[in-house]
Amino acid sequence: MDTSQLLKGVLDLAVLSVLASDDAYGYHIVRTLREAGLEEVGDASVYGTLRRLYRSGKLTSYVKPSDEGPHRKYYGLNAEGRDHLEAGTKTWKSFTETLDALLEGATR
């Protein structure tokens, strides 16, 4: 199965989890996700997701000038973002457990 299809549903969670450790800007988030193994994550998808999460009040955002060139926009989790991540993590865990059990039954 194409991983990018699976990714769409959980990109929110992936982005939030990157921001849980520290505030970050778009490119950094893309790179972190790729390094973690999500090779197929699209650059634009990350920016779109950030915008959507920001608009729904789960992120804070601020601009920082960078040494190398243009400014960078940093995003961070606020309380609602953390709640969302926590709830999403629970949902994800119970979902994967269910699916694991199903798949185990199917392959046995």
């Binding site: 490119y27 779109g48 959507r52």
Partner: peptide, 30 residues
């Protein structure tokens, strides 16, 4: 700029054409 610092390939090959990029932005931003 950061992508360019790592690779000299055209952006279309790295992150898709502007059309693909814009469409992906819209979709992921809802």
């Amino acid at each position: 700029a950061e992508i360019r610092a790592e690779s000299e390939e055209p952006f279309a090959d790295l992150i898709g054409t502007p059309e693909q990029f814009a469409a992906e932005l819209r979709q992921s931003a809802g």
